[in-house]
Simulated scan of single mutants.
Amino acid sequence: MAFTFAATKREEQGTGASRRLRRAGSIPGIIYGGNQPVINVTFDHNELFHLLRNEKFHSSVVTADVEGSKEAVILRATQWHPFKQQVLHLDFQRVAADQKLHTKVPLHFVNAEVSPGVKLDGGIVSHVLTELDISCLPANLPEFIEVDLKDLASGHSVHVSQLKLPAGVEVVHHGEGDPVVATILQVRGGGEAEATPAA
């Protein structure tokens, strides 16, 4: 799915100007990177609010139509109102087809219900990570990375090194070791609780 949205250049800056824009149904934001100057822009709140509700929008190269000039960008930061369903500010970074980008993509967990740890032992899946830092060219950017739990036994874990990454995608790992992605926790009770009186 390709996402395209409109952006308008803005001259006014500062808290007062941003407040006026938000009252008028617009979102202030910036587009930066790509060896080009930062441009201050505004977006239509309703249009971007609905796009932000789509998970794919957060991990896709999207197109900002800045007054007729198309910019390939990726969402970098979203500022929300503390308690209203209102977007306060958006940051987008330009991307170039021949330059690797570093971003986060969501993890999608599948087959938990048929894994031995859940189906046979009644365990509970604990999602330690829900997204992954990756590096790749824009053309190779996946919408998500699948984590298959079908062979996972109770008390065992899936690690980052065990994930099947799409072609051209590398994990950006900070620190040492091999981080846990998900684990199946053993649920105490059941057989143990019944065995105690008998003993």
Rank of each mutant, 00 (worst) to 15 (best):
E113Q: 14
T183G: 07
L185P: 06
G68M: 03
H127K: 15
P82G: 00
S126T: 14
P106S: 08
V128Y: 08
E194T: 11
H50N: 13
L165Q: 05
E113S: 13
F92Y: 02
S26R: 15
N54I: 10
L152K: 06
F5A: 11
I39V: 00
K70A: 03
G190K: 11
F57N: 06
V181D: 07
K70F: 07
R188E: 10
D44C: 01
E192S: 06
N40H: 06
E11P: 07
D148Q: 00
K100V: 04
R20K: 15
G33R: 11
G14C: 11
S26D: 13
F5S: 00
H58E: 10
Q162L: 00
A195S: 13
E176M: 10
G189W: 08
E143I: 11
P197R: 03
L165S: 01
D148T: 06
V125E: 11
S154K: 00
L107K: 06
R53I: 10
H174L: 12
W80Y: 15
I39T: 07
P37I: 07
A193E: 10
V105D: 02
M1L: 14
A198M: 10
E131H: 02
H108S: 13
A64K: 02
A64F: 01
I27P: 03
A64P: 09
G16T: 04
H89I: 01
L165E: 05
R19S: 15
V171Q: 03
E170M: 05
K150E: 13
G123H: 02
I27R: 04
S26V: 15
S126Q: 15
L152D: 00
P142V: 09
E11W: 14
Q36K: 07
H108F: 05
H81K: 06
S59N: 08
L132M: 05
F3S: 09
L149S: 08
K119Q: 07
